[in-house]
Amino acid sequence: MSGSNLHPGLNLGARHGSAHEGAETVVFGFWIFLMSDLVIFGLVFASYLTVANPLGMAGGPGPADAFDLRSIFVQTMILLTSSLTFGFATLALRHEKGRTVIAGWLGVTLLLGLAFLTLELRDFAHMIEVGAVPQRSGFWSAFWGLVPLHGLHVALGCLWIAVMLAQMALLGLVPVVKTRLLRLGLFWHFLDLIWVAIFSIVYLGGLMP
């Protein structure tokens, strides 16, 4: 496979012809976009850490009052599994297993994404109940700036999956649809990567004994 890779990440492979060659430019461009997005997340993380202390909490509730580790664990599992199912969708695309198989794995990923969002919204509702709202303190402002930003990305990813399902149905697996699926895959895996940092720093870090 060495030499046939045109861009970082999983390649479609030479048998896909123009879609494979076209991917070189667009996937590279998308990688750069992701890196730019990574800087945004990195700085929001840094801002969160600067107020993750009693001064930033300003006498309001702390992480232990508002976080539910069990729910976070379930969300983590869901998101991790969705990364795997998206991987299977990409493999089905790469090895030309047909539209139905790809759409099936994408559908499973979409459902997992929606399940994640539902649980996350339930968590947020709980936090609002206990007064862990951004209006309360700098700490909660930073939390609400960080975790929902990831949630927003997941929601956009879900929208994107839905759009791709429609495009696969309407346009078929034309080259541009294939390269979009590749980019969507990068986006989805990238979100899981951000989530690793979120559960480690925000949730586990916040609930450390």
Binding site: L55, A58, Q135, S137, G138
Partner: peptide, 21 residues
Amino acid sequence: LMLAADRYLDFHFFTNDLGGN
């Protein structure tokens, strides 16, 4: 955007009070 959150939604990223920095 953090400043916008402060101004529109009463966040406390950069305010004087309540742990803003």
